[in-house]
Every structure is written in C-alpha cells, then in structure tokens.
Simulated assay, not measured.
Amino acid sequence: MFDFTTLAIAFLCLAAGGVLKGATGAGAPVIAVPALAMMFDVRFAVVVMMMPNLLTNILQAWRFRGSQLAGSFVWLFAIAGAVGAVIGTMMLAVFPADYLSLLVAFGVFAYIASRLMRPDWMIGLDLARRLSIPVGVVAGVLQGASGVSAPVSLTFLNAMRLDRPIFISTVSIFFVAMTLTQVPALAVTGIMTWQGMAISFAAMLPILAFMPVGSALAQRFSKETFDRVILAFLAALALKIIYDFTTR
C-alpha cells in the first residue's frame, strides 16, 4: 500500500493542497482528498486530512483573529458545520467506499460549476446570516462524508464577497469547529486509528512546507490564472475517479 511511488504521489498531492491553502487561505482538501481517494479510498483520505485541517486552521484563525466578522454569523455557521460533520461521519462509516468516491467526484464538479457559472453571484450579510445554519449543516455533512465541503462552504463564503482577511478568519473558524467534532466521531466509528492519526500528523509537513509557495504564487500570478489551473487539475482528478469507478 505504501511503496515509494505511492508515497511520492501522496506527498505531491498534499504539497499541491498546501499551495492552494497558502494562495487562498482555504481549499487544501479540495485537491488532496480527491487525489488520495483516487489512490486509496475516501475514508483514508478523510483521516489523512484531519490534523492538517485542524492545525493549519487553528494557526490561521489565530493569525487573523483581529479580522473576525461582527455579529453571530461566524459562530452560527461554525456550530452548524460541526453538527453536520458528525452526521456526515456516520455516513462515512456506513456507505460503500466506491460510492463515497463518486460523492467526492461529483462534489468537485459542483464546485467547478459554481465557480464558472456564477462568478459574480453575491449574498448580502443579512441573507447569509439567515442561511448560515442550513448551509453550515449541509457543508458539514459533505465534509464528514467525503472530506470536501468546498462545493457548499467556499461557494457560499465567496458569494459574500468578504475581504481576504475576514474570509480566511471565517473559513478557519468553520473548519476548526467541524474538525473538533469529526475527529472524535471518526474514533468512535473506528475509522480513525492510532496509525491513521500518525499518518495525519505526518501529512502536516508537505502542506506547511508548501503554503509559503502558494502565498508567493498568489502575488505573482493573477487570481484568474491561478483559478483556471486549479479548476483544470480538479476536473482531471474527478474524471479519473469516475473512470476508475466505471471500469471496476
């Protein structure tokens, strides 16, 4: 399972997730989970991303603690996400791995479609606050069941047109809340083992090492160019997952 070639590819997937995280403040699972699910399965991919999700988002939440959005939105959204993550983790424990991989692939396509079809979509803060609980729960369920909440969470927050520091602060608190409930839920269901925890901590290294690369690239290239490359890469991963499913 863990030959040199597989480890090298997994390292590159995690590094690519670190680049995206450094460039945008979010989205490491968007690249890493589909790639790892393609090589292993969704349960392994979700476990691997637990500690990177938790620790990098704690660091970002602390770094941008002075840029929190005023009012109750952030905490309503985060608590709803945490509840959804527990529900999604129960689904992860029960549903067949092949169908969970398809969920990842279709989630990625939904994310790509939302970015391409409605780039100018905007949600005001009052409406966002009313939607925070249902959207947070749905995003949490996706995160728990597939490891990728971006089709809902990032699309929703992007549509709010938040300034970058506020966006990073908001999304970091959201992911911290989800991960804090998802880790014990994974342990209770037997999906998270001590070996899985050790691998998850090790996955921190390439992500942290390549986050500065993402920050540098974000300053050098336009956001549109960076987005196109990421979306093309994600589409290729999702197509490969579907191809593998149909040829089994």
Rank of each mutant, 00 (worst) to 15 (best):
I191Q: 03
A145M: 12
G107I: 11
A187M: 13
A105D: 09
V148L: 07
G136T: 12
S67P: 03
S200T: 04
V148G: 04
V86C: 13
V47Q: 02
I173K: 10
V47I: 03
M204V: 00
F226P: 07
I79R: 08
L59F: 12
T246Y: 15
F73Q: 02
M90D: 07
S169L: 09
S114K: 15
G71A: 02
V152M: 10
R43W: 06
A232R: 06
I31Y: 11
L205K: 04
R130K: 06
V137G: 04
T193Q: 05
G136M: 15
Q143R: 02
S114R: 15
I79P: 14
G144H: 12
V86Y: 14
R118F: 13
P96H: 04
D41T: 03
W194I: 10
V229P: 04
N57P: 00
A10V: 14
S200P: 04
F2Y: 13
S153I: 07
A198D: 07
P165K: 02
P151C: 12
A105I: 10
S149G: 06
E224G: 00
A105V: 11
A26Q: 08
V229A: 01
L7T: 10
G147A: 10
R115V: 11
L239R: 03
Q60R: 03
A209K: 02
T170C: 09
N158F: 03
V108G: 01
